[in-house]
Nucleic acid binder design. Sequence first.
DNA 1: GAAATAGTGTCTTTGAGACATTATTTG
DNA 2: CAAATAATGTCTCAAAGACACTATTTC
Lengths: 287, 287
Amino acid sequence: MVNFSAPSASERRFMPPAVAVSSVAFALHPPVDANVADPRSGDVISTWGEYAGREGARVEHATTLWLPLVRRTRPPFDDLWALPGGPIPWDEDLYHTAARTLHESVLRSPGYLEQLFTFGATTRSATAQRLVTIAYWGLYGELDLAVDPTTEPSRDVASDVATAGKNAVTEFSEALVASADANIAWFSIDRLPELAFDHADIIDYAVWRLRQRTEYSMVAHRFLSEEFTLAQMRRVHEAILGEQIDPANFRRDVLAQGQLVDTGRVEEGTPHRPARLYRFKEQPEHV
Amino acid sequence: MVNFSAPSASERRFMPPAVAVSSVAFALHPPVDANVADPRSGDVISTWGEYAGREGARVEHATTLWLPLVRRTRPPFDDLWALPGGPIPWDEDLYHTAARTLHESVLRSPGYLEQLFTFGATTRSATAQRLVTIAYWGLYGELDLAVDPTTEPSRDVASDVATAGKNAVTEFSEALVASADANIAWFSIDRLPELAFDHADIIDYAVWRLRQRTEYSMVAHRFLSEEFTLAQMRRVHEAILGEQIDPANFRRDVLAQGQLVDTGRVEEGTPHRPARLYRFKEQPEHV
DNA sequence: GAAATAGTGTCTTTGAGACATTATTTG
DNA sequence: CAAATAATGTCTCAAAGACACTATTTC
């Protein structure tokens, strides 16, 4: 077999670049059993279930977005946080690699995933093999976060991946991190830790793109459950855009799009007039 | 040195994917000395200078866009046309690889170049090594096309590139094609030949993205010379969008953007009232 | 009925498409 | 003056921001 490990300096320049995928996966809040970083100190403090219960935080009033990060356990950037991801197996499509590595870290599959940009500057990591990263951005909706955490990864190629990863890509450990790990935690995008590589730039760009998409398309509903009120949908837009929206105009505009269907049902248990529940029209599959 | 050539089937699955760049480079018309394909038959017939002289074609009345292609001279897809591009040298940024390989094929540098999408489906080329292509799209303006064709490639790494390319990427010959070659020709986007790999899809996506950009930003001026009339600029928009635009409304909208500066001069030699000449305000550099 | 939020209606501003009209040049 | 295109002005319609007002529920 070809030997890729420990290339000498003179060999390195003839090696093709290593290719990996990294994902910025947004959610309105972490899964209940996930580790979270304290929005104030930045330290990983407890699971979201405990934290949210203690602080009285509610999805209803979500005002920021969260994303999962993985702590590196080897150089370079040892001990810093990085985006979930990993190398590309030789027989796996890019989209699928992004989805699979996210699942391996978060133990859940995102409801939406789209290619963001390919980062390949030679200055990204001066210490080792040239690294090209194809970045994806995705969304975890309420239903995605609720998926049973005991679910196994869907593909049966775990050994292939580990082998290819260990041999071909020396800088990436994300795919190799064990499940349900203290080295995986969720952070508010308003309070991110120091990040490995140029992952801070990748996250900035992903946030910008999410805002773009929110303004001229209908992706925001993917944060919500199957059925939702217009007020819930409006709060998602407000969290993404970071500003308040007029409820009446939001209603008029979003209904004029013709993408929402009135289920005929209404929410229950409110201390006031209950709102109608809507659902989204079926969409063609993404590419 | 590590041996990448002629991998066996069992070795291939452990090799990292080959990484290459391909570019879709639009222009209002080919350079005068470039080979062109007949818009009717699709055969390469002559240089643009001869063709345009014979047919009386004029930039003023451009109604379609053109792009350069390279004929492959080896399997797979031997003899089909493909996008200009090549493998990524270990020490070169992605953007620069796209710009350099374009220059090597077209002997000119585009005035604008932007990343499009990364194509990495495993089905793109079933016959050989896994190939990930980072596609760029770019624009050649009038000034870019006029550059002296004797200009040398700007970087002094030709031997590096050839070596890395021959060893690491078995499917790509674009970077190795000699200059001013019968295997390089320009095609109207309305009459493209049969294309290698999935390059037809890449071109479709690039055209779509160019139209998007044209509608909500100001890239179209990059097709023009330093100074230009509003009518010339309008014809560029019409060629890109494929439909006519009201001259009065176009004037109002484009001037309201505040990106154009009246030079105070007017065009000369017209058989009617001469139009004012405008130029573009300085823009921050692209990334 | 008070409180709270859902939901409706309307006034106004803005931007863009359609198109009539005036201006300036050559021959 | 005729022909051709540049440049300006105006009418209309549609989308969106601001905001007043009505409706329905719990307590």
